[in-house]
């Protein structure tokens, strides 16, 4: 009996040690320093600082046709990013990319004798992904932050809904989910989260599409009127466009350094 018990204990001990040791070794070997799975993604589009040019000349001249193109672009964004539409209270609307008149897009730049084509046209607006974003400066939880590629990102799960970023943003580019957006998202894209009520959201330059090697949805739907690319790369197409055309940005005097440029 005695030897049996000793034997049992020995076997049990060895088994435990082997199990523990093996487990630790196995888990240690499976552990890799934290890495971004996207880093290994070959298709992923990379940039030092993403930026966009909105070339107004490339939109149709006819006002109605132009509206249709704008709406197509907005629709592409909304269906890709599950942006709610037609909320019960219009003042609580969520906007990622939208259109407005010159004097609202460039307040202070208007004049009483504005060229007709500028005065009558609408412009597309979206988050400027500023180099010095005030929204990131004020956020108390780093729920909004600047990625290395310049995209001003949102962590929808960290945001406490204080809306300080909305007070900080000089462009009105941030929206708060006053109510549950779910019922107002028309065709849900299962590959992208639908936000919850009580958090702030905005355009994220379709970071999820960049990872798949695709351009942002609005750019893809714009037939070349929206040019997206790396502002840090002097050889990029966007830099060539910027070199060859006179461009303006919204409210540059505030020092935010927007990454969205307009060719008026």
């Amino acid at each position: 009996m005695g030897s049996n018990r000793r034997q049992f204990l020995r076997i049990a001990g060895i088994t435990t040690l082997l199990g523990l040791g093996g487990g630790i070794t196995l888990s240690a070997s499976s552990y890799k320093p934290q890495s971004d799975p996207a880093q290994e993604n070959e298709k992923r589009l990379r940039a030092g600082r993403w930026g966009m040019v909105i070339d107004m000349r490339k939109f149709p001249k006819d006002p109605e046709e132009r509206q249709r193109v704008f709406d197509r672009i907005i629709e592409a964004c909304h269906s890709t990013n599950n942006v709610p539409e037609g909320e019960a209270k219009p003042i609580q609307e969520v906007k990622w990319i939208w259109k407005d008149h010159f004097e609202h897009v460039f307040p202070g730049k208007e004049n009483p004798f504005l060229a007709e084509r500028v005065e009558q046209s609408e412009f597309l607006l979206l988050c400027n992904h500023c180099k010095n974003p005030p929204c990131v400066r004020v956020c108390p939880t780093q729920a909004t932050y600047k990625r290395e590629d310049g995209i001003v990102q949102m962590d929808f799960h960290r945001c406490i809904g204080c809306r300080y970023c909305m007070a900080g943003c000089p462009y009105g580019s941030r929206s708060f989910n006053f109510c549950d957006p779910g019922p107002y998202v028309k065709d849900k894209n299962p590959d992208f989260p639908v936000r919850m009520r009580g958090v702030v959201e905005k355009c994220l330059f379709c970071y999820q599409r960049l990872e798949e090697g695709k351009q942002p949805a609005c750019v893809e739907a714009s037939n070349g009127a929206l040019i997206f690319g790396d502002l840090d790369d002097p050889d990029s197409h966007i830099r060539q466009v910027l070199r060859e055309n006179y461009t303006v940005r919204r409210k540059v005097d505030l020092g935010t350094e927007p990454s969205v440029f307009y060719i008026v």
Partner: peptide, 15 residues
């Protein structure tokens, strides 16, 4: 339960 939609605030006057 409903969210801040029950308030008079909106995307413009957000506080």
């Amino acid at each position: 339960q409903k969210g801040l939609t029950v308030t008079g605030m909106g995307r413009d006057v957000s506080w």
